[in-house]
C-alpha cells in the first residue's frame, strides 16, 4: 500500500531563545561601550602605542594631563598634542595664558615652547596633576626626550608612559 505523501507546509522556527540571548548580549555591549571623549573625537591621528608586558597599572582617568605625540594620518606630520582632562583646570590654564575662544580646544596642537607654558600653568593650577606621555611607537625617541626635558624643567619628575599590553 502506498504511503500518502504529506504536503509540506511552510515551517516556523521559534526565535524566542535566540532573541533572549541576543538582547542580553546587546545590553552587555551597550553598557560596557565607552564613548570617545571630546578631545579624541577631534583628533586626526591614531596612536599605535608601544607594547609592554611588565606594566600592570591602568591609565588614570582623572587628575591627569596627557602629552600625545601622534602622526597625522593624512599628512604624516608628527606633532605634540596636549590635553588636560579636568575641565575646570583646563579653563583656568587657558585663562592664565589669555587664550582666544578659537584656541580653547580640548586638545591642543602645540610646539615645545607652548608645551612648556602649558605644563607650567598645569603645575601651578593643580600641583597634584600627573603627566602621561602617549607616544606612537614609530616616532623617533627625540620627540619623547624633548618632552621629558620640558617636564623636568617644570619639576615634574615622575610621569608615565602609556603602553599597550602585549598579547
Amino acid at each position: 500500500m502506498p504511503k500518502i505523501k504529506k504536503k509540506r507546509l511552510g515551517f516556523v522556527i521559534d526565535m524566542t531563545p535566540m532573541v533572549d540571548v541576543t538582547f542580553l548580549l546587546l545590553t552587555f555591549f551597550m553598557f560596557t561601550a565607552k564613548f570617545k571623549t571630546e578631545a579624541e573625537a577631534e583628533q586626526k591621528f591614531v596612536i599605535k602605542r608601544p607594547y609592554a608586558s611588565a606594566d600592570t597599572s591602568k591609565l588614570p582617568d582623572k587628575d591627569i594631563a596627557i602629552i600625545k605625540v601622534g602622526i597625522d594620518t593624512l599628512t604624516g606630520d608628527t606633532s605634540y598634542y596636549y590635553t588636560i582632562v579636568n575641565e575646570l583646570q583646563r579653563r583656568q590654564v587657558y585663562d592664565n595664558l589669555n587664550f582666544t575662544p578659537e584656541q580653547r580646544k580640548p586638545q591642543l596642537k602645540v610646539g615645545l615652547d607652548m608645551l612648556d607654558q602649558l605644563i607650567m600653568q598645569t603645575r601651578i593650577t593643580g600641583p597634584r596633576t600627573r603627566f602621561a606621555i602617549d607616544g606612537d611607537r614609530r616616532i623617533r625617541y627625540k620627540w619623547i626626550e624633548d618632552a621629558i626635558d620640558v617636564l623636568r624643567k617644570n619639576n615634574a619628575t615622575a610621569f608615565n608612559f602609556v603602553t599597550e599590553k602585549r598579547q
Binding site: I148, V162, T163
Partner: peptide
C-alpha cells in the same frame, strides 16, 4: 557595539627622572 567596543584599556609604565 561589538565592533566599536575596545576591551583593552591603555596601561602605564611609571618613569621617574
Amino acid at each position: 557595539f561589538m565592533y566599536t567596543t575596545t576591551m583593552v584599556t591603555p596601561q602605564v609604565m611609571e618613569i621617574s627622572v
